[in-house]
Design a protein around this nucleic acid. Structure first.
Lengths: 236, 236
DNA sequence: CGTGGAATTTGATCCAGATCAGTTTAGAAA
DNA sequence: TTTCTAAACTGATCTGGATCAAATTCCACG
């Protein structure tokens, strides 16, 4: 039974960039129909093709977006706090293009799409936040498509590692956040191939031990990967 | 010398979905700094990485979006009337992720990004239109990424032809709108391979003669292509 | 602490698609 | 028309990456 969001969660949500500068009464209105839920790992949240009843926001944990066709499946993205997903479907009131599942124990806010659209019309600040988030999502997919079309799988992996390294603080050693099979799918390759790709990157000073990656020669790896602001900088 | 848009163009623009239900004074304000320009074929309009000073709207003709990295280049999309391009960059005031060039003689409206952002805040109707357009763009790229990751080049071509056929009215015979080399790049394959792919599709009743395509056995082709609403329906 | 099952790795082979090299065709300009 | 050039096609070959088939490692769980 859905009883709306617990008041205790309000400050948490209110602090998110998307909600921080909207009017108080609009915020309250939006929260009344919304709720926060905890999910165990490996739970399907939405299925592609279904109508988009809720805008989802990952507060904690990790959610994987994936898609299937003709018996094949591919990982499209990993969503990490604090981000929305299926925003575009919510806004257009169109069916989901991707499925979603939790990868780890996750805390997720669910806002009725209808309410989101209504408040969008009422609150210009909220509208601006929504459109900024959507533009961000758009640009991420474009970057991903560029990576797929312009790079070999080895180049994609090299740049992926550089991005992960940066996200982990920039040190020479960092941890991979997920199983390699999932990484492989995300990068558009098979697990077998990913394993071999890691080996190939040894030539550029990359060492992998379980989930621990060490970049021994930053310059060498970067010279090979040739990271580009227009593909690999996910902050702009 | 930019002198703003000719009044004569106003009704034309006003009729576009994005502008049709915004306030009159907001429309006038937006138009004052904007203009419409005619471009010959094969003219570069924008270059990836540049700051996004203008929101572009294709009124007539065709514009190709493409991207380059490390000496390679790929076609990302074809923009046809009436659509915007680089909307996300305009809104975020971020650099373009793709370059654009005209493919044929084109008429294009240019609206200063700054003004677009300003009017977005003032006019909820305009805001709603912008966000709908942006969501549409997002979903298109996601569909494209799904196609790239889930399908072989032959399957991509088959579905591409089915989409073109539908766009042309659904008849058995229709024309390809561009050179095959560009089609190949758009579909993520080489021209040589596209040529061979066309040959392979003969087995499913597809005949190509120059730019004229005939689908002799619709069912056969569709059985092979397995078009999906969640990948191939660009209207939702 | 051992055990069962999945994830990963490794090796062998296969295949889709790229590349290279040449030929043919088509369209634009003279 | 004729000529010129770029596009398109064709054939031969190569290669990145997939697939298939083990072997091995890693954990989660009893």
């Amino acid at each position: 039974m859905k009883l709306g969001m617990a008041k205790a969660d309000y400050p948490d949500i209110r602090g998110l960039e998307i909600f921080s500068d909207m009017g108080e009464e609009h915020f309250e209105g939006l929260m009344r129909g919304s709720y926060v839920q905890n999910f165990p790992p490996h739970v399907d949240l939405i299925t592609e093709g279904d109508p988009s009843d809720f805008l989802h926001i990952v507060l904690d944990g990790t959610v994987e977006l994936f898609a299937a066709w003709n018996g094949r499946e591919t990982s499209m993205a990993a969503v990490r706090p604090v981000s929305t997903f299926i925003l575009a479907a919510s806004i257009k009131d169109a069916p989901y293009l991707m499925s979603a599942r939790t990868l780890e124990k996750s805390r997720i806010a669910l806002l009725p799409s209808q309410d989101v659209r209504a408040v969008f019309d009422l609150d210009p600040n909220f509208a601006r936040s929504i459109v900024a988030e959507l533009a961000q999502c758009y640009r991420s997919v474009v970057k991903n498509a560029k990576s797929l079309k312009l790079r070999t799988s080895l180049e994609r992996l090299a740049n992926y590692l550089l991005r992960q390294q940066k996200r982990a603080g920039g040190g020479a050693t960092f941890e991979l956040w997920t199983e390699k099979r999932r990484m492989a799918s995300l990068l558009g390759m098979t697990p077998e191939n990913l394993s071999r790709a890691f080996k190939s990157l040894q030539a550029y000073g990359v060492q992998v031990n379980g989930t621990t990656v060490t970049v021994h020669d930053q310059n060498d790896l970067e010279a090979f990967a040739k990271p580009s602001r227009l593909i690999d900088d996910y902050s702009s």
